[in-house]
Design a protein around this nucleic acid. Structure first.
Lengths: 158, 158
DNA sequence: GTCGCTGCAAAGTCTTTGCAGAGAG
DNA sequence: CTCTCTGCAAAGACTTTGCAGCGAC
């Protein structure tokens, strides 16, 4: 389904590009590039999961214990990144939001309302159909988001 | 796709059925049928929108000021209804959850990023496809939400 | 009468904000 | 140097819980 670049070099290049974009964004808005902001972006990038602010904070504390990054900074940086469309947030049944880097390949989400787990998928038929609908209604489609809510197989067996 | 009953009598019958289902559910679990629970179900039924616990509470206070229904009861009843699959909850970008009667049909949204207008649509192919995807991945699909972002025809001509 | 239900208020979560010192540009 | 950031702790927003009296069955 989704093309995922697993090659180390490719990922590195991708991250460098992301960093450049981030720095450009900051400069444009007279904001500062701090070590905390870099670490947050990097940790988000390295994670293959959708992270809550809390889990992101934990990851950072584990990997960079000397930084003593505060949870407030994580929240502030995530808001910043979201406003700039560098990350996307999802809310699910339980409390809180989860974040992922927006730069990743387009996909939709299947969200378990019991445990909050998120599965990604892409379906060509739906993508086509969306364009078709937009055309029919005279829209120029720019983007879309779709979430399916349900109960995942592991929660069903409980 | 889903049959939508707009005729008043049909709606009444639907509600009666809903009430019966609710009472049956309560009896099965040795729970009690209280006026508060009835009012919450009725208000949910009468509303065409997705309601937050708070907005539901407000509606109830307006329509039944003598009841002095507490917000805690609204939360408790919504949880009960959700656990019994009589209502579905959705969380969107903002904080909090929104609830709707599970029996209702949903619609998706086409959102113009220029003027903010919202067009509703339902597409059977997409609905089918979603169920298919959920099945494939072992999910029990409960609901979904989909938004297409673009530029509407009137904004295009500007 | 019994046992679940309700409103109230207090306690929990999760997130945001105010502030004074630290640090990037 | 200036002006933004950061961590901390306090404040907010939303939701859940404990309790004593109330009410359905």
């Amino acid at each position: 389904m989704t093309k995922v670049t697993t090659d180390f070099n490719d990922r590195t290049i991708e991250y460098e590009q992301l960093l450049i974009d981030f720095k450009t964004l900051l400069k444009k808005n007279s904001l500062k590039f701090t070590i905390q902001r870099e670490v947050i972006l990097e940790t988000l990038y390295k994670s293959d999961e959708h992270l809550t602010p809390e889990s992101l904070h934990h990851l950072i504390q584990e990997k960079f214990p000397d930084l003593k990054t505060g949870i407030a900074t994580v929240y502030r940086t995530l808001s910043l990144l979201e406003d700039s469309n560098m990350v996307t947030s999802l809310s699910f049944g339980a409390q809180g939001k989860k974040y992922e880097l927006g730069a990743k390949n387009h996909h939709d989400h299947l969200i378990c309302t019991e445990c909050g787990s998120i599965t990604e998928f892409v379906d060509e038929q739906i993508e086509d159909r969306q364009h078709h609908i937009a055309d029919e209604l005279g829209f120029i489609m720019k983007d879309h988001s779709m979430q399916i809510y349900g109960i995942c197989s592991s929660c069903q067996s409980k």
